[in-house]
Design a protein around this nucleic acid. Structure first.
Lengths: 106, 106
DNA sequence: GGGATTTGTTCTACAATGTAGGACACATGC
DNA sequence: GCATGTGTCCTACATTGTAGAACAAATCCC
């Protein structure tokens, strides 16, 4: 499996942090916050959809909430494969940055 | 500036680790080792070239070495912008993985 | 000299990911 | 009904990832 792109990784992390109750607009907000810049709505959904197609996420539909405008959501959670990828990326980040710290601080 | 892709980041790190004496095939070897899988020659050069076009790397040509097949190399080094990007990515990785470690370990 | 071999770079084409915008759906409030 | 709030999907295009072949220039060795 090819290593996930940078946005895909952000989305995986956001889903992991809200596992089971993560949905499109929430993920968008979380990723936007993490990046410090707005992620477009379209980018969020496209990425979620691609991650599900790759088998890293699964989703189900929920009942609409009885609040103003509240409607049915698609909630995502990590699959086992998704958790493995996330763990592998975490390790990789550790190796990438953890070694000698003499480079990387402008 | 858009955040660099995953391969671009690998290449930046490889160049940083050999700053001033990093050249195409060396970078290719370093990235391949870091990833645990062979990076194609074309991918290595394409990425170096794009990073230079973005102003994160600069390059100069060297004299050929007096060894079997040794010929002129294009040696890369980080620009100030490149070092900044690297530092920013390092910080970002810290925030991404450093928070609560309850997710990310399969 | 000249082919085989080694080291190194460049070019071209295509696949995967990143991104934005608009269209669509369906709740509630009035 | 229709304005408004929440949520999703679709389409198009830009950027990045990837591989392979072509090319260049040096040494080796007959």
């Amino acid at each position: 499996m090819r290593t996930p792109g940078s946005l895909e990784l952000d989305v995986l992390v956001a889903v992991a942090q809200h596992d089971g109750s993560a949905y499109g607009l929430l993920v968008r907000r979380a990723v936007s916050t993490a990046r410090g810049s707005e992620l477009s709505v379209g980018a969020a959904y496209t990425t979620l959809s691609r991650l599900e197609a790759k088998g890293l996420l699964s989703s189900r539909s929920t009942e609409p909430l009885p609040v103003r405008g509240g409607r049915s959501r698609r909630e995502y959670r990590l699959t086992a494969a998704g958790r493995e990828v996330l763990a592998a990326e975490r390790e990789r980040a550790g190796r990438r940055w953890g070694g000698s710290p003499q480079w990387g601080q402008a």
